[in-house]
Design a protein around this nucleic acid. Structure first.
Lengths: 232, 232
DNA sequence: CAGTGGTCTAGACCACCGG
DNA sequence: CGGTGGTCTAGACCACTGC
């Protein structure tokens, strides 16, 4: 139900203020209890699609004109996919390697085996330089899934979910400002030493197995990571 | 109830795995319905304090050995306060000024009036250099509350909430990597040009009025912004 | 298998908002 | 004042876990 409602909202069905149905209307429309309706609306609220006010009702959140730099709104994993909307990413499969010590230390992992490695570049239509570069490591348990990965296509973790028949259930992120190494500077069209935003993500499946680690590097001057927090 | 349970968890009451009470036990202990228990546990889950698994039960999330850098776990505004636990912040009240163009542009505001300005330094016991510096602007509507602010004390937005009789209802954040200016480099003990993580926050009250803007600057090498995302 | 958390129904009272 | 969403009770069935 949340999915269907989300589609309707994104399609703009309730774009006029006051258009959004009340809880009781939704109960009747979908023939479910109020609990179920509220559960669905809770999801949409946490995604920032709607906002609700006691006594007034529910309104669709205006797609606020994102000023200035490239933004990456992100409050749940669903939105990670949205990020890919007007950009494309392509990967290159590299030789398997162990998780580099610097990364392993930061996320506190002790894996010793060699993981599958992918190098990715995210591009925006009409720009020559990539807007971000990514290094991703995939758990060696998932060899079968890795064989089927299409390096030109969708997100890595999405494909792993599909081919590996697993579901991402949590993601951790560490965001840090670092200095561009010669290598990353060249890729991103920066000077060595320029600020770079590094986002280090760990993806866990439903059994709490870490199945992917990704490190993406964004030019500091062209990228801001945006998020919103609702307070209960 | 969530608050009380959170205290117990942080105090370490349920540190052994298998110690955490089941839903039915909590129902009896607090004499509330299962809905209420689940609502409280939902909060703690979203804060990353506990994790739950159908059939197995609820376990307190291990305070994973945070390697190296200073971390700032943050998934809701409540946790912004926690950040202050082993650190202290002190402010200095400056002359009112209009929001600088660079900031105003990024957050897309058109306020023209002069806002109250505070400069803050966050320190950790036993370190001479501040671990972060902050610049905060407070909405000129809140002159009465600003008069009562204790610059040596708690968080700015917390005091504004109290004295201004308002409640923060949402926060937006923009996280960006920037290059240290001469001024910030000196304050943080860095070289000019070193990477800095800037977190730009806008605080909104229950009427969606932006009542505070804050920009905090963290040394790139000593600070990582950590967060976790649960997928439903 | 018994017990866990996930989901759901069908009621209820409340604080708050608008007309 | 009636209707909104916020909170809550008291049940129920289910999938999944561990023994």
């Amino acid at each position: 139900m949340a999915d269907q409602l989300r589609e309707e909202v994104l399609r703009g069905d309730y774009s006029d203020p006051g258009d959004f149905p009340t809880e009781s209307v939704l109960c009747k429309k979908y023939d479910v209890s109020r609990y179920t309706v509220r559960e669905a609306l809770r999801k949409l609220t946490s995604e920032g699609l709607i906002s609700r006010k006691r006594g007034s009702g529910t309104v669709v959140q205006p797609a606020t004109a994102r000023a200035g730099a490239l933004h990456q709104p992100l409050s749940n994993v669903g939105e990670i996919l949205q990020y890919a909307r007007d950009t494309t990413i392509s990967f290159e499969k590299m030789e398997p390697q162990a998780i580099p010590a610097k990364i392993a230390e930061q996320i506190g992992t002790t894996h010793k085996r060699k993981w599958f490695v992918f190098h990715g570049k995210r591009r925006k239509a009409g720009r020559k330089r990539p807007i971000a570069v990514t290094v991703a490591w995939v758990n060696p348990d998932l060899a079968d899934a890795v064989k089927q990965i299409d390096v030109g296509g969708a997100t890595l973790f999405g494909q792993i979910e599909e081919y590996g028949k697993i579901t991402v259930s949590r993601v951790t992120q560490d965001i840090q400002a670092i200095s561009a190494s010669k290598h990353f500077a060249k890729d991103l069209g920066l000077e060595e030493g320029d600020p770079i935003l590094r986002i280090l993500r760990c993806y866990f499946d439903e059994n709490d197995r870490m199945f992917e680690i990704s490190a993406s590097y964004h030019p500091g001057d062209r990228f801001a990571y945006s998020m919103h927090i609702e307070v209960d």
